[in-house]
Amino acid sequence: MFLLETRQLMKHFGGIMAVNEISLSIEKGEILGMIGPNGSGKSTFVNLLTGIYTPDKGQTIFKNQDITTLPVHRITEIGIARTFQNLRVFQNISVMTNILIGRHAQIHNSLWEVYLRPLSAWKREKAAREKALEFLELAHLTDRRDELAKNLPYGEQRLLEICRALASEPELLLLDEPCAGMNPVEMDTLAEFIQRIKASGTTIFIIEHNMRFIMAVAERIVVLNMGKKFKEGSPLEIQSDRGVQSIYLGEEEDV
């Protein structure tokens, strides 16, 4: 069963075709990877899926529902969460509050309850705090809960950003270059964390530059080149594909 499907998704900026008729599907429960050289349209593609950009043409279907034109916050509410390539945790706020903000859509207190039924609102807040601790546990960040996010080492901030996305209890988690700037040890921690997320039943879509990482983590890989889908297959197939090698390394005669 497909969890998410894109149909001929297209987006151009001026004369540049950033995403050109990309159709792909993400199956429930899998870890799908996406690779491609710089400027091949990977980040634009994620921005299209999450509503930050609206496509010029094409459709996005999530759980049999057309989400192509939904605003960003609605897409989060129906179950897609994401992280950013250039790390966007809320710097001046505690780790715990970061997670609670991530849980925004799951805390169903209305303004009236906040003011007029503060006790029942407080109970929901307390439940949210307990739940937030579970996510911190998953990333081994429980001891850090009261620290400001900016005081965490880089690798932990990356994990925190993923935790914050998980806190909305998404069915689909999009990770945009999660290991950018990480050292090999941090990468191992991340790979292990991703496996734990998958085990909890979340479908994961990873965009990544680091080949070693993506080959080890993803079950299926889509290759983009110049805004188009170039190839799709298992990590082994992609690794041994001469076409893929050439878009990364250039044609043999160029070398």
Partner: peptide, 22 residues
């Protein structure tokens, strides 16, 4: 409440805040 946290999230990073479902 979650409202106050949403305000702070907007102050810190509006795009990230909207991705949190705000």
């Amino acid at each position: 409440s979650r409202f106050g946290r949403a305000f702070v999230a907007i102050r810190e990073d509006e795009l990230a805040a909207s991705v949190m479902g705000i």
